[in-house]
Design a binder for these strands. Sequence first.
RNA 1: GGCAGCGUAGCUCAGUUGGUUAGAGCAAACGGUUCAUACCCGUUAGGUCGACGGUUCGAGUCCGUCCGCUGCUACCA
Length: 640
Amino acid sequence: MAKRTYITTPIYYVNSVPHVGHALTMLACDVTKRFARQRGEEVVFLTGTDENGLKVLEAAQAAGEDPQAFVDRISQTFRHAADLLHIEYDVFFRTTSDEHRKCVQALFARLMEKGAIYLDKYEGWYDVAAETFVRESDLVDGRSPDGNEVRWVSEENYFFRLSAYGDQLLAYAEANPSFWLPDGRKAEVVSFIKQGLRDLCVTRSNPGWGIPVPGDESKVVYVWFDALINYLAATGWPDAGWEDLWPADVHWMAKEIFTRFHATLWPAMLMAAELPLPKTVIAHGWFTFNDSKMSKSKGNVLAPEELIAHFEEAGCERELAIDVVRFALARALPYEGDTNFTLPEVERIYNADLANDLGNALNRTLTMAHKFVDGAIPEAEVEPEVAQRIAEIKAEVEQAFATFRIHQALDAALQAARELNRYVDAKKPWDLAKNTDPALGSVVRGMLAYVRAAEGLVRAFVPATADRMAAQLNLPPTLAWAEIGTAASLPAGVVVGQPQPMFPRLQPKPAEPKPAPEPKPEKPKKAKFEPPAEIGIEDFMNVQLKVARILEAEPVEGSEKLLKLQVMIGEEKRQILAGIRKSYAPMDLIGRQIVVVANLKPAKLMGHESQGMILAADGPDGRAILLTPETEAPEGTSVH
RNA sequence: GGCAGCGUAGCUCAGUUGGUUAGAGCAAACGGUUCAUACCCGUUAGGUCGACGGUUCGAGUCCGUCCGCUGCUACCA
């Protein structure tokens, strides 16, 4: 069997409910699929739910439900969220399936065989809520950086040798420019990898939920490690036939799970297993609502079902209201950055693009066809300029799709409607009709050609709309991309249908009093440190400066800047870390007298405790210049 | 603190390797048109292209410094 095109969304973690962000990724994937299919590819589109985490078990227990019943229920809500927007997935995959369990265990065993997974002892802090390990130095007031509770664990676990794949990943990406997209994200991954990858603990002790490690029932596979494997599991691997689908052509996702997991961990796992890598891993940005926060009371709800209802109320058929939401999502889809997604913005897109451009273009074209040529598609040929413009627009759409710029592809597709308007204005068919000008047939055909092209070009984004357009033209849907712009797609003599407006224009609202600008949520922004112009002597006296002598100095392993110093302050011995490695060799420091801040709160750096701070001047080029008493002073002497 | 990105019209954003007069959509004003969903077409207005300096015959574009925003990341001066 020939290789099929395989595209995926992430599988969604079932401890939350679907929202517009999920809709965005699913739509990106859906449009990608429909376009590929139009181009003649056989496509399989995978989505699903991630159901194995410890948090899932806890959420089920909190809800007083059996875990399996719980995940069955939540998984359904994601399926419905996809169905709601006519997301045409082929496989809705669940990580509690036997198929998945089998594949995860097989891959795990294979990675062990190849030495990419090894057993080691982990001792340290564990963030229960995030299901991740936390370094001592990252703790903030005894909590994880995210503010979650941590607990000390000491257990044997399996580790994936992620550290071994950094260079290979970089080399692969270098050779395959569309492996990581978009470019901005690629740069992020490169810098993430260049700073060094660490091996990843990929098991947890078995809580009675999850996929047991083959040969060691006391452990389950870490939820992220398990989840990523779904892409492979859905192909049937390791059973025969998986090559029909694997490698994936596109993994779509939102940006937050791109760098660490999909762009790095997953391809490294595949390399370790000696399996082919996906062609493209691509992340989109987020929607923000900072202009007017989403809330029901403000009437600017942006949940997909609410938006659909909003446009149904405005007079759209339900199928078309769904397309309105698809259209708005695609039009605003954040490629490199994040974009604002607000109701006024969606309404603007609706009126300008759907009502005024696309809907009206079809409407006026059909009306004129009936008025001027009895509704029959004329035999005359379209003018070469028209055919030329359509070909150009089509090429623009293709070009945007080549790098998955969904929003640009849609904008390009709309050019067909915009071009039609200019064409009509230039040709003035009503004048031609009045004068019985023989050019009339060609002009009407040109208009129909634009509308017919638009129908094919927007089909991947708004399939129901495209169907309505085809139906009103009384022509079959343009299922094949190659047909777009051809003479054959517009058979002469067919009598087109009567226009039926699809997207009634929204009436501009009576000018609302400007909503008071919302008080900006206070950012926990760290104020830049600016010393006050003057301080009192009492402030200065709070700082205890003392003369000390360096007894030992050694570099901190793994650090570029830090030296670990043992110093004597009077009778007291202290360990102090100092970022002066670039300026001083350890040997040159031993025996020297320096000045230290003796009452600084201790801190952990790179896992070592620092009980104070040494004084040094900021020299040129960022070099440090140590302060030393001019003559030897008794150690422990106060400095004022 | 480091690295990366961004800063262009009232708003959302394009601007290839430096090259005439910096563009599009929306909003605005004016004009035109009548096939159409008060639509469409055109014109106009609106920009020290974040600031300053530099390279160049020529800079939105390249270099430096600074300011502001965003992301990633971090190691006590």
